[in-house]
Design a protein around this nucleic acid. Structure first.
Length: 921
RNA sequence: GGGCCUGUAGCUCAGAUGGUUAGAGCGUACGACUGAUAAUCGUAAGGUCGGUGGUUCGAUUCCACUCAGGCCCA
């Protein structure tokens, strides 16, 4: 007789092979048809609100793995909050304006771009951005990320654009906006400003000159030094910036001395003095160390122009080259500018748009700066302030378009004043009231806020939101008022932002506007706003105007680069207009690196595109990978790791499959009450109860890698290795409707119901697949976490069972020894003798009777009364094993000495004989 | 060059107010099973806790420096 037909083997069509790349799109389709996002929102319309406000990715190009990480993390939080009973809307956004898109478009257009009107270029930029918004949207959906894709926020939408102008106007009204000079890259040939991204570095030969700045003899006063011949010495490779020199900069910590060269006395950093011997062409004849106080007292004179050059101190001074004293022209260098601002120096720039000297430097008025190099050197030589000149070849910025060398030149820009009205102080205090994850984000953000300079808001570009300012055509003064901006915001809201370019100035400027000089004749200016301002006002736009939202958001979640980026660009406008931060919690994640921990780059060829992983493994594998790593640090990804994640996925999937297979004949009416369960059953429920609690806590603390870990361990150890392995002897062998088996199934059913929901925020697709498979009509994402009964918490059972588990480890080790010696093959054919010294445990084992055989999965267990010979001392007990003399029952596969006692079933053990007879009857 | 962060078995992660043999899962090897089967079960091997120096009776844990890597600035 084939007894395998009498055994309750698991039956399920739930496929072992997930085939996620094919299955996930089907699930997506179903979600789309049922409008899953809307359904969830609708079903929770009265629930507590939790808002994760999306930071907008930039709409050029396909998503990369970092986007996937960011969106999946957000989605896990949103799904967790949803499962916890909250209404957690999620409005995805896109950053649409800005240089990268404009560059893409103008590069595509080539030379045609030059003659094209701004409105045409803007149109092309708009459709470029639009294309990638669509692409990225599909890619995010494919990841299983839920959101209001019908109503995303786009920084280029008419509503959003007019909101930007509106917010800008209010900030202007608050007195935060001012106009000032700032040095930027400038191409004198193209007569245009350039952004860092447009700069190409290439070799260039420049003059290298050492110049003396005379120290006022009355401020010298150093014993042994001829006060009339004392000079501070600087080195530069841009002689043409000497006319714009306003200061000489020392390092606050370096040691400076006066060095005697013949009749001359030079102030130099000590570390560079010997190099100067070669430059000067003679030996140092004496050194006179200087204190900082002495240096501070010096008055130093400009070598060409009759004015003082201020003595200042800055950390940017280095000993790499030169003299340790830096020629400082705030209008022509980034560092010079920054230190100049600190010392209140003018951002002085005597150079015009074409790169020629202006009236400010009459000696060379109209001379191109590159031609001026030689002339400046001549002048210095003539007046005796030049020490040495030579040529140097070095890397120098060039224009990407015309390939000519660039200059750094101060131009008029619009700024956001960070220190107006105590704003920086307010920012510092919001840092305290915001929750930072990880905690060090607070210190990082604080130090950035503490030191950040004013925010330069203007860009000389086409693709963005125009700064609606005017210039008086008579006196050239700027005109922009809260009223004039408000006026334009109204027009923008009604007709779109492009009116700035298309409409006549008469309609754009409020009637009766008059310049201080009395003129009413204005012209439009065409600067646009920094795109960071666009995304920085997203909280005003979305949280104020989207249905069912509120200001501020509960959470901002981005990469740690946004401490300087979006978190700040969002904070400053919020503080200026509302006095508090737009976020309660700021969570940052690290960056995705390759398997060696190196940053991904095209040149290294180590980029892992998400679509490749999705195509090969599926989005759930990607989601599981995200959950498996501690995102607070940088994350790594590579083929080996993904393979490992796929293995873990299979373990989890198979666990579900096993449970479902064994529940095929179980329904709620078959449930067995808790007090009828075995210790082992209760132990699993106890473990499950705590797993559930722990996992929800991990989600709450945003520690998803611990969710992953707990879940995987539970599947592998508590369930697969311990519970399933032991209980197969009941599930398969006992009569289908026996209490023991139903008890087992009751536990499995509880496990299934709770676990599928616990993993839903992470395995968005697979949990849905399981949910549908067990016959549910709705989506698992509309559900809440399953609440396990508090009575499952049973520490007493836990300690009882775990005492046995420990002893079982000993038994398994002993069996393994015997197996190696080829004495036995399987644990089931083993007779075991055990001695445990713990009285309680021994009593417990005795009470178990035959159950203990099942627990240890052996043929027989004999409890020794004392530590006797033949027993081997192990970790928790003393054990001896030997091959049983019994035979194998063909039905239950257990070994017993009494096979075939019933002649009608010669191959069965008494237990199975009884069961067979019962089934037949 | 500066600020911040990271560095524990092949991989992903735990861990300890400094104190006996530093843990888990996965992977690997070997074995078992063939009634979770492109599954399942068992056992084992694997780490001078990035390196050096210091504080200490004692440091992987504290301090300094250093190396490798990351983000942001310059």
């Amino acid at each position: 007789m084939d007894y395998s037909k009498t055994v309750n083997l698991p039956t399920t069509d739930f496929p072992m092979k997930a085939n996620l790349p094919a299955r996930e799109p089907e699930i997506l389709k179903k979600w789309m048809e049922m409008k899953i996002y809307d359904r969830i929102q609708e079903s929770r319309k009265d629930a507590g609100l939790y808002i994760l406000h999306d930071g907008p990715p930039y709409a050029n190009g396909h998503i990369h793995i970092g986007h996937a990480l960011n969106k999946i993390l957000k989605d896990i939080i949103v799904k967790h909050k949803t499962m916890s009973g909250f209404r957690a809307p999620y409005v995805p956004g896109w950053d649409c304006h800005g240089l990268p898109i404009e560059l893409n478009v103008t590069r595509e257009l080539g030379d045609r771009a030059k003659d094209m009107p701004k409105t045409e270029i803007r149109k092309k930029c708009r459709s470029f951005a639009d294309k990638y918004v669509r692409i990225q949207m599909d890619e995010f959906k494919r990841l299983g990320v839920f959101g209001d894709y019908e109503n995303p926020y786009l920084t280029m939408s008419p509503l959003y654009e007019s909101k930007i102008v509106d917010v800008f106007g209010k900030i202007l009204k608050g007195g935060y906006i001012y106009r000032s000079k700032k040095p930027i890259y400038w191409c004198p040939n193209c007569v245009t400003a350039l952004a860092e991204a447009e700069v190409e570095y290439g070799n260039h030969t420049s003059p290298s000159i050492y110049v003396k700045f005379k120290v006022d003899p009355s401020t010298a006063g150093i014993k042994g030094v001829d006060a009339d011949n004392l000079h501070a010495v600087i080195w530069t490779t841009t002689p043409w910036t000497i006319p714009a020199n306003l200061a000489v900069c020392f390092h606050p910590q370096f040691q400076y001395s006066v060095f005697k060269f013949g009749k001359e006395y030079y102030v130099l950093a000590r570390g560079l003095a010997t190099q100067m011997e070669e430059v000067v062409g003679s030996k140092i004849e004496g050194e006179f160390p200087l204190t900082r106080e002495q240096i501070e007292k010096f008055r130093v004179y400009h070598p060409l122009i009759n004015r003082e050059s201020r003595v200042i101190f800055g950390d940017h001074v280095t000993l790499d080259a030169g003299t340790g004293i830096v020629h400082t022209a705030p209008g022509h260098g980034q560092e010079d500018y920054v230190i100049g601002i600190q010392y209140g120096l003018e951002v002085y720039c005597p150079v015009d748009d074409e790169g020629r000297f202006t009236d400010d430097y009459p000696d060379m008025k109209g001379v191109n700066v590159f031609d001026a190099n030689d002339k400046v050197v001549d002048l210095l030589r003539k007046n005796g302030t030049l020490i040495q000149t030579s040529k140097i070849e070095h890397s120098y910025p060039h224009c990407w378009r015309c390939k000519k060398p660039l200059i750094f030149r101060a131009t008029e820009q619009w700024f956001f004043k960070i220190d107006h009205d105590g704003l920086r102080r307010k920012a510092m205090s919001t840092v305290d009231t915001t929750e930072w994850i990880p905690v060090w984000g607070e210190a990082r953000f604080r130090s950035m806020v503490e030191t950040r300079p004013d925010w330069c808001l203007s860009r000389q570009r086409s693709w963005g939101v125009p700064i609606p300012s005017f210039r008086c055509s008579k006196c050239q003064k700027n005109m922009m008022s809260a009223e004039s901006v408000e006026h334009f915001a109204g027009i923008a809201a009604e007709k779109g932002i492009d009116s700035w370019y298309t409409d006549d100035i008469g309609s754009l400027i409020p009637s009766g506007t008059r310049c201080q000089c009395g003129s009413e004749d204005f012209i439009k200016e065409y600067d646009i706003l920094d795109v960071w301002f666009d995304s920085g006002v997203s909280h005003f736009v979305v949280l104020d105007s989207w249905k069912g939202h509120r200001w501020p958001a509960d959470m901002y979640l981005e990469g740690s680069d946004q401490h300087r980026g979006w978190f700040q660009s969002s904070l400053w406008p919020a503080l200026a207009l509302r006095g508090s931060a737009p976020f309660k919690t700021v969570l940052t994640h690290g960056f995705v690196l390759d398997e060696e921990g190196k940053a991904m780059s095209k040149s290294l060829g180590n980029v892992v595109p998400p679509e490749l992983l999705i195509k090969e493994y599926g989005a759930d594998i990607l989601r599981l990978w995200v959950s498996s790593e501690d995102y607070r640090n940088d994350l790594r990804i590579g083929t080996d790791m993904i393979r490992q994640i796929a293995d873990s996925y299979r373990k989890i999937r198979n666990t579900f499959k096993f449970i479902m297979g064994n529940l095929s004949d179980f329904s709620e009416k078959d449930r067995v009450p808790y007090d009828k369960l075995s210790d082992l059953d209760k132990w699993v429920l106890h473990k499950l109860y705590h797993l559930s609690k722990k996992i929800i806590e991990h989600y709450e603390k945003h520690e998803f890698h611990l969710v992953y870990r707990s879940m995987l361990n539970f599947c592998a150890v508590e369930l697969s290795s311990v519970y399933f392995d032991i209980s197969k002897d009941i599930l398969y062998v006992e009569p289908a409707d026996s209490v023991k088996r139903r008890a087992n199934q009751t536990v499995l059913s509880e496990a299934l119901k709770s676990m599928v929901k616990l993993i839903t925020p992470i395995l968005a697709f697979t949990s849905e697949e399981i949910w549908q498979f067990i016959g549910m009509k709705n989506s698992v994402h509309e559900e809440s976490y399953y609440r396990l009964d508090d009575s499952y918490d049973n520490p007493e059972v836990e300690s009882r069972v775990e005492g046995l588990v420990d002893v079982k480890k000993d038994v398994l080790k002993a069996i393994e020894e015997a197996r190696k010696e080829k004495k036995i093959k399987t644990s089931l054919e083993t007779d075991v003798r055990i001695f445990v010294s713990d009285q309680k445990l021994r009593g417990q084992m005795m009470e178990m009777g035959d159950e203990i055989k099942r627990f240890f999965q052996v043929a027989s267990v004999e409890l020794a009364g004392e530590e006797s010979s033949g027993l081997v001392k192990m970790d928790y007990s003393s054990v001896s094993v030997m091959k049983t003399s019994g035979n194998k029952c063909v039905r239950c596969w257990n070994y017993t000495p009494d096979i075939g006692t019933d002649p009608s079933h010669p191959e069965l053990c008494p237990r199975c004989t009884g069961i067979i007879n019962k089934i037949k009857a």
